[in-house]
Design a protein around this nucleic acid. Structure first.
Lengths: 249, 249
DNA sequence: TAAAAATATGCAAATTTTTGCAGTATTTAG
DNA sequence: CTAAATACTGCAAAAATTTGCATATTTTTA
């Protein structure tokens, strides 16, 4: 019996019976207990079941899984996320815009972080369900298919009624002359609303987003409290931003 | 070079350059063009890039992927979803509650279906982003971690302002005496609100949900327009439901 | 506490998957 | 239309992964 088939049967058994022993599975599947043990170890690593002494118990099944390997510029995004995490304290209220840097941040939040997070991004909301102490509020609206965020007047209205400590903003582009800009008109209005509802604006940018300008203005440089990039804050590429008075980390 | 590593490099190249030729990749990675062709074929099958003549072009990256193999009772859910699809027409307004049967339905909607769909479920919303002609409206609120749906007064209020043709309701339990019931108080209120906002209530139930009762009432049998199960409507297990005057398919 | 059961580790053998090649079929460009 | 480039199929060899076993270690049970 091939490994994949076998592991599917293990998942089904655990789903039906809640707890299953390695010896039972070994007999049922006609393989050694060692093989079952390995399978259980692997499935546990994927979060599909929980390994216990002598067997396995079922886990709430998450059908959607996040493939981190696919993130472009992943190491840089991890670096940025780690800088962002150093700003966060328990009991904060945070707004997160979309994008993969924010998604990486959501993933890397400490598992014991206690916070309230507002977001309009489906992937980020899904990722936040893995954090037991985070209260996630999803801002509803019409789904924009490609970016998997909500749009529309509902989103802007909702944002205008909340007050957050921090807004972590990503995706768009930043330049000295224009500040933060975005490709879409509606998204730019939503981001403006996020900024208006937050005490501190932290812009997350991989270095390829620096000096990039889009069609719609979101805010000026002087409205941003801090920019977090994968570069060291002494990097020559950031010289002009420092000179413009921006806080870098 | 191992296959996984190689495929990651292919994805990165396509992301950077938008279009890449098989011969370029073959040289760069020092493998035969046949191997590249196979890789591209496999990555195309996973939706990670688009195969074109002589190479590949990039696809919008979806980082969250749906593992259909993990759905318990999958074949039964497909059967139910197919029955549900036979009820749907273009330009309908539909409310979908949570659960894996509804998720399967979302997946199996025709790719050319034109409809407006309201949902409070993160996985279902994500699945609906694969349907180019479906307008998905996500009902915001506080995320309930395990079931990945939104909860709270916001959801109920939002629902009270819309009017849908159909509500496809799943998960809970159904019995002759109590009708539809649910495990959670708040979810039961939300489901009541879904029912109040819909012209037709269609309950989706795998046979193991029949004669199952939970703590909180959602609605009586006589409020349900139709029940779709994996069983044939002449099945003995459904006799009492037919006698109670229920429509079955 | 001692004995039994479960787990972890290393390894060779077994199994499965991948690869390049040769030949054939299809598509593209001139 | 023809020639060149690309794609597909089948296959044997190579590579990668999996498996059961033996042994040592750890955990659980009585």
């Amino acid at each position: 019996m091939k490994k994949k088939e076998r592991q599917k049967i293990i998942i089904d058994e655990v789903s039906i019976n809640r707890k299953v022993s390695s010896s039972f599975l070994s007999e049922k599947l006609d393989v050694s207990e060692d093989t079952i043990r390995r399978d259980i170890h692997e499935l546990h690593g994927k979060g599909l079941l929980t390994k216990v002494h002598g067997g396995a118990i079922s886990t709430i099944q998450k059908l959607y899984h996040y493939n981190e390997d696919l993130i472009y510029n992943r190491e840089n995004k991890i670096r940025i996320a780690q800088k962002a995490i150093s700003l966060i304290r328990d009991s904060m209220v945070i707004i997160m815009s979309g994008g993969t840097t924010n998604l990486m941040l959501a993933k890397l939040f400490p598992k014991d972080l206690k916070a309230t997070i507002y977001t309009y991004s489906l992937p980020i909301a899904m990722q936040l369900t893995e954090h037991p102490l985070i209260e996630t509020i999803f801002i509803g609206g019409k789904i924009h298919r490609n970016s998997m965020v909500t749009t529309g007047i509902d989103v802007i209205q909702y944002l205008s009624n909340i007050r957050a400590d921090f807004c972590f903003m990503g995706v768009s582009g930043i330049s000295i002359e224009q500040g933060i800009t975005d490709e879409g008109y509606e998204v730019s209005l939503i981001k403006k609303a996020m900024i208006n509802s937050s005490d501190h604006i932290v812009y997350l940018a991989t270095s390829n987003k620096l000096n990039l300008r889009h069609r719609y203005d979101v805010c000026n440089l002087n409205e941003i409290d801090m920019v977090l990039t994968n570069l060291d804050s002494t990097d020559p590429a950031l010289k002009d931003y420092l000179k413009a008075g921006l806080n870098l980390l």
